[in-house]
Amino acid sequence: MKGMSIIIKTISSWIKILIFLFGIYIIIFGHLTPGGGFAGGVILASSYVLIMLAYGRDYSEKNLPLPIASKLDSAGALMFIAIALFGLFYGAGSFFWNFIQVKFFADGHAAFDLVSAGTIPLSNIAIGLKVAASLFLVIFALSTFRPAENNDKE
């Protein structure tokens, strides 16, 4: 899989940055505007899928190596569970208790700010990492497979 023509390579090398930034924007502002961890994570994954389609599999593996991707996947899941457990052990809380909101923002002075809403932005970041890494790994696994005798022309 050598990748596509020079035009597509040049344009996708410009556009991948914009897609990546848009994904990060959607994740960070997820508690104020439409979007959130799910949509932003899928957008981040699709920027890497664009690199994979335009440049070929080897370049994309150099860009985001598979061990790092699987570690990001695990880091997202662990971060989400860590947030939940902090809520359980910090104060008289319960699982997924929004302890930051109750301790610091309870009077509502930070409403509609970027730093507000307690654990929700942190959970958004965790879910975004998780979804992006998982979908990248799935599509990478689908694209690496080539049958033995039935030769694909990709």
Binding site: V42, V131, S134, L135, V138, I139, L142, F145
Partner: peptide
């Protein structure tokens, strides 16, 4: 449900 659908679609396709 939508994101889970994408995951299960990838599984079925594989």
């Amino acid at each position: 449900s939508i994101v889970i659908g994408l995951g299960s679609l990838a599984l079925m396709v594989s």
